[in-house]
Design a protein around this nucleic acid. Sequence first.
DNA 1: GTCCGGGCCG
DNA 2: CGGCCCGGAC
Length: 400
Amino acid sequence: MILVNRAVSTTLDNIAWFSRIRTMNRKIHSTLSSSSSKPDSLRIQHPRSEDSNPETANGASGSLETRVYTRKKRLKQEALEPLEKKSQLCGLPDIEEFAFKKNTRSSRRSTETNITVASAKTTAGTSFLKLLCFFTHSNCLRINLVVLNLGNPPENWVEVLEGIRQMRSSGDAPVDSMGCDKAGSFLPPSERRFAVLLGSLLSSQTKDQVNNAAIHRLHQKGLLTPEAIDKADESTIKELIYPVGFYARKATYMKKIAKICLEKYNGDIPSSLDDLLALPGIGPKMAHLILHIAWNDVQGICVDTHVHRICNRLGWVSRPATKQKTSSPEETRVALQQWLPKEEWVAINPLLVGFGQTICTPLRPRCEACSVAKLCPAAFKEASSSPSSKLKKSKQSKEL
DNA sequence: GTCCGGGCCG
DNA sequence: CGGCCCGGAC
């Protein structure tokens, strides 16, 4: 069985291969519509003959006989992805998106094959039309037709990233000693994931050591499972996690999340972005983090204030059609995802967080200690400002 | 003493 | 949007 998926994300309006997608989608469409309710078979040909890209060669050759299942398009509930909206306006036919729902969990990317069908360079950057093929755990071959748009990456970003990596490899930042990724690494999968979720919840707005200790105390009391949290007193949880910021709120969230996990997810944690976001106390930053760590699934970049601040200092992100800094982490996330290759999406967070803790600090960044300062537009410029100007009524006249 | 932070709530 | 939670870093 083969599942066909189209995931489109692009900022480009008029690229030649849009017509290719249209053609392919029409093919799929007509195949589907002629098949009444039953799934039908479909031939997808590799356009290798007209494709000069060497990557094409790594796929299976010839054609694939496939069965196609689709499902009706999911309702878009948020308007935050201008890219997707735009692509919808381009008049692409609605081949539905096959989203893996419940019961489809971990490790589905192990056998992924990445075939570039076409690529195009434009003033807006480079875009690829790719076929991503992989077997799911239930032995379905899943095919994703993906339009990847790499917007114009900033000059020298590779060099900058490499420089930061080197700075980070020597002096170690707090984030290295303990991220929530270590939480419960000794536990069975489902419990480990729950522990990861708790760790993420606690760790934000909190120093890592404090969070580490809190997790440790919870573990000692056997409170790393949804069942245990559900039964435990909220006040008990409060006391155990106490030194973390917002402990009262977080204890409440933990109770609610545990209950939801038990009732809706059979004691596991949600595996989709949307379902994670629906949990109380879980916003975009933590949802992406949890998806990375617990499910090894990369839907987006985990952008916290460090990533937000540093990307803006480096001039890596800006508001659409302007050169202004992005004003929120969410905006930064979308902008960053437009050009940063997906391979870096997971690594970028710990990298920049650590960098932000040690060198590119919010206040008075240590540009003199930064090896990539010469490539940084903001180097030696900021005495007291960061992306969000936060001088309300202050008398910030002293201090440098 | 003031500001910070992720997410929620009004 | 801006206030709120809460401890800790300036």
